[in-house]
Design a protein around this nucleic acid. Sequence first.
DNA 1: AATGAATGAGATTTCATTCAT
DNA 2: TATGAATGAAATCTCATTCAT
Lengths: 222, 222, 222, 222
Amino acid sequence: MPHASTNSPESRRAQRRERERQHRRGSILSAAEKLFAEKGYRSTSVEEVADLAEVSVGTVYFYFKNKGDILAELLKQISWEVRNLLGEEFRKADASLDGIGRAGTAFLTQFCSKHPDKALILLRESAGQESEVEERRKWVFEKLAGDLMDAISQVANNIGVPRLDETALGVAVQGALGVFERIAYQYLVGAARGTDMSAVARDAISFLVGGLSTVLWEHKTA
Amino acid sequence: MPHASTNSPESRRAQRRERERQHRRGSILSAAEKLFAEKGYRSTSVEEVADLAEVSVGTVYFYFKNKGDILAELLKQISWEVRNLLGEEFRKADASLDGIGRAGTAFLTQFCSKHPDKALILLRESAGQESEVEERRKWVFEKLAGDLMDAISQVANNIGVPRLDETALGVAVQGALGVFERIAYQYLVGAARGTDMSAVARDAISFLVGGLSTVLWEHKTA
Amino acid sequence: MPHASTNSPESRRAQRRERERQHRRGSILSAAEKLFAEKGYRSTSVEEVADLAEVSVGTVYFYFKNKGDILAELLKQISWEVRNLLGEEFRKADASLDGIGRAGTAFLTQFCSKHPDKALILLRESAGQESEVEERRKWVFEKLAGDLMDAISQVANNIGVPRLDETALGVAVQGALGVFERIAYQYLVGAARGTDMSAVARDAISFLVGGLSTVLWEHKTA
Amino acid sequence: MPHASTNSPESRRAQRRERERQHRRGSILSAAEKLFAEKGYRSTSVEEVADLAEVSVGTVYFYFKNKGDILAELLKQISWEVRNLLGEEFRKADASLDGIGRAGTAFLTQFCSKHPDKALILLRESAGQESEVEERRKWVFEKLAGDLMDAISQVANNIGVPRLDETALGVAVQGALGVFERIAYQYLVGAARGTDMSAVARDAISFLVGGLSTVLWEHKTA
DNA sequence: AATGAATGAGATTTCATTCAT
DNA sequence: TATGAATGAAATCTCATTCAT
């Protein structure tokens, strides 16, 4: 049985260290996620995050360069999860309007319902903060917008609108994002918190798909 | 003993005082509007507002109970203006889907383009703030949502959907708000700042009306 | 008796306010001077300064933009006092080498002996601090060097060295500053603290005047 | 049982170990020297020193008891080099004023010009630091002062001033040190950085020797 | 010997709000 | 009414030092 050099004591120690590092980092992020969603980013102090994560303030600053960095990292993780979920759903339905509908449903029923903390951070806490965070938020939404743009372009193509007008495409994308942003927020923390999400999703998808197809149609005949 | 008529010196003095009061209050609000839109609510200190308004910090606290109160008041004013504008447009078109489209167009081309500071505050500054302001934001959007809800209900009625399902109505309203919120923001301060607003408005209205009619239609046949 | 408008109640109130401002500011500076000289700039916290001055930390930041600003202001004041003293002494002796000697004596026996706190801040605490302070220190020493340069130039002229070589002038100036810097420091806080200053001054002046005249002489014959 | 001679494997291993130890220690000191001279002692963190030396923070603390200890060690090394250089030069010239002049020239042209980092640390970094370092600085300068004191005493003796007054001796020494301290600093990092050092040295030596001889002369006739 | 993650005391700074005049 | 100096709680961030591995 050949002995791999990656199994040397030093290597194993290094690996364990790395695992522990990631674990610690993860604890801090989880603590921050919970608190930011609960009490808001501004009202959560670094000390509180450290306390909940059961580490010292210094340790937080060992893993993150400042408070904004924590939020930025959360945003990155969350956006990664969301994009994965949406992309998968979209692909399942073969790049059709229906696929966009599925993705939207998944966002509301899979993501927002199941990870309200994450959803809140994405939708509420990341807005209106210091420029560093705002930067990241912009980046996240640009990524999401990019995904959506690709999706809509494909759909447009399949439908027979080979080169959709740029403004129309942008409006469709932003409109779609806006629909979800608001609806998710409204049914997560707003007045209507607690409503059955699957019913909400059904109507939201009608709205979205109706809106999109109208825009596309208008640019087909035009 | 001369009795003070409405033209007595005392009365005139009182009137002047009242005028000056309102003027001062207005200066403070204008200053805050400018600064909040420019640098953000958080990054604007009360002192800066006072400086720009050419009053002392103490005076600001004479007219407003705290910093959040200034933002709340701005939100109130802005929402009043927006509701006026939208209501008027909507009435002109006789409670039809077309009327909703007109109102949306007016919001984008009349309000957002012409009062970007106000639009920015409405769309950006009220999110993710301390609870007091968040409260007001909720209130403002509930007012707007209420207007929209009435409008959609009427349209639904005219179309032959006498009692629209509450969830559907809510989703339609929030969807519509979301579309505008994001599109206005994107084309006001986001990446696409500077795009021709009338083209944007055309597509946005297509999206909105398409979305709304689809939701209504679905609940008619259902 | 004509009544001056500068005696109006408002004006008097403003004057008193200004006096009180200056007084407060002065208290803070005095407290800082004492503490900086005693425990060192770095080891003195703003809170300690505030406590000794019997004001709150916030008040310190109302009068000074940051901690370095306090030290910078002290440096400015101190250099002003020193320059005044030296200039006066120099002039008394009619711009001769003797005048430079007098100025040096005054620096050691009038200034350093009587205001050791100030001398310490000038000579020790201002060095090696953050760039803002270092900047000011440079400025202060450049001013002092400038004064000395003028003095030496005049002496050179009177002695018959009309245009002293620039390097020689610079070296003479820096040499003179160095002599005083070190001697003052040594006899203020160094090993020899407590020695009779007038004896020290006599020898120091011999050294200084001897050094200067040698440099000048060399450049006369050269 | 083989007895370890000085060439035994154990011995050689021990020697290598010792060599490595010294090398590591040296790396840390070099890194610190560079960084302290470049950015200042205060603004250099232990981590930065460790990084540049390519060791861990822990290792730095294995070789040095704390941050100040690194600076203290640097000061010790530097003073040792300087004393060696000066002593040698001084001996060459047979305990005369001329010898002191030679030593000064060597300090400026041999040491300061060629090892500006070391010179900067000696002249700048050791002032105004925490007491531990300040202690060491005092010690270093006392050593240098001691050397100089011996030299001047001998010169005084040769000149015919058998027992020079202690104060006069102290002042002469401190004066001489001050001249070099400031001139080296000024022409190394100050405004006049870049000036031809040999010209500077000529004038500086005139100043120094002139000053010294005047003090001595005065105490001969007195 | 060497590592580097963890610590936590301590420092600076901000700014909404108050209140005596 | 208006002023603006004063407050002080609270928050962020740094970094020399320790210590388990």
